[in-house]
Amino acid sequence: MCSPLRKKLLNITYKVVVPAAFIGLFFLIWEIICLSGAVSSLILPTPAATFKAFFTEGDLIMKHTGITLLEAVCGLACGVAVGFALAVLMDTFKVCGYGFKPLLVITQTIPTIVIAPLISLWMGYDVKPKILLVALTTFFPIAIGLADGYRATDADMTDLMRSMGANKWKIFWFLKFPNALPNFFSALKISTTYAIVGAVVSEWVGALGGLGFYILRLQRMYAYDAMFATIMWVIILSLLWLLILEIVKRCVIRWDKKEN
């Protein structure tokens, strides 16, 4: 029989200590490989050099982070708004449900790297085309996730709302939307990671600033330690976004945690 304290300690061990140990081990192996001379430090800098570069290049990384974050946040906001509107249309009008779905799938089969130069050509090299590209990559999971959530609403619950005299709008507001919130947050998790990646990729093909632009510049300068540091920072940024999202989700979806 496990005591509660022992159970809690085991839980922390599995969820925090073990993953941290594996990440530490990964960096250790990387460091050993570099120090052994198996791979040239010019091609693959050591984790220590990468860590050091993060501090020496910190100001520039932060400056470019601001631009990338602006593109990612604005793009994600637009993507969520468009995804939300599409999901409502698909749920409300049967013809939209059947009509939009193939179009949505087609938009997702076009690789970002292919469409990014076109969008830059049409809209220039400032942040606007990047926002558009991020919106294009993030709206799909939101639209599909929400539409599935709306569709999964219990028909008996809809009847119950109707028997109260609720119109379509009230059924949506009091029943369908809250019912789709878990789907929405799952979709948002996917879109959030797409947002950072989409912003960085769109900066590669032509930009005046941003982490993608900076990574490309560092690559051309053969400053691989700073480049790796920036890539690591992109990963940390994505993880931080996911963490913030998880906290928001736990604040919004409180009923799941309180089930018997």
Partner: peptide, 16 residues
């Protein structure tokens, strides 16, 4: 609708 009070077969309490 909205003229009588109707309780369906399941309790249908909104979980959220």
């Amino acid at each position: 609708t909205g003229k009588v009070s109707y309780m369906l077969q399941k309790d249908l309490l909104l979980p959220f």
